[in-house]
Amino acid sequence: MKINFILNDEEKTVDIQPDTRLVDLLRERFNLLSVKEGCGQGECGACTVIIDGKAVTSCLILVSQIEGSIIWTVEGLEKSGELEIFKKYFKKHGAVQCGYCTPGMVMSARALLNKNKHPDREEIRKAIAGNLCRCTGYNNIIDAITAIAEEGGFGV
């Protein structure tokens, strides 16, 4: 079936099996390799993307569900320049180790900042509750997101 959506600020139309998972569409058709797969059941958050403003695990979404949606991945934030502030503070606060969970973390953080400009640490913890990380113990990631929120410039 044909599906239309906006991906990283570009209009797209694909002809595809409706039961294809979004993670596969993004990785295989569009080569968006920031979208990682860690569990395939929506439990680890490595495949998190933003759909219509919300952080969503793309392994649980079928392409038939995305007609007319606005989808963002880290590659889109890179293109729009928004990723710079994430790079700056994720690096500064040691929020990146192996990096496999990082793009998903960035997308969850970005979705949070879209609706809450000044989240406290507890709100940040909740926003990334679905993003598992085995390397960092999360606190450095929370430090980074706090610093990004403080510098501001996002959403609402």
């Binding site: 920031s34 990682k36 991945t73 990723l83 790079k87 990096g99 496999y100 793009p103 960035v106």
Partner: peptide
């Protein structure tokens, strides 16, 4: 000194190819 990790930029941007991405 707390120097940022090498390749952190690439990891954040999803540019670093892991073996599973190859």
């Amino acid at each position: 000194k707390s120097i940022p990790f090498k390749y952190a930029d690439q990891k954040i941007a999803g540019d670093l190819k892991y073996v599973s991405d190859l």
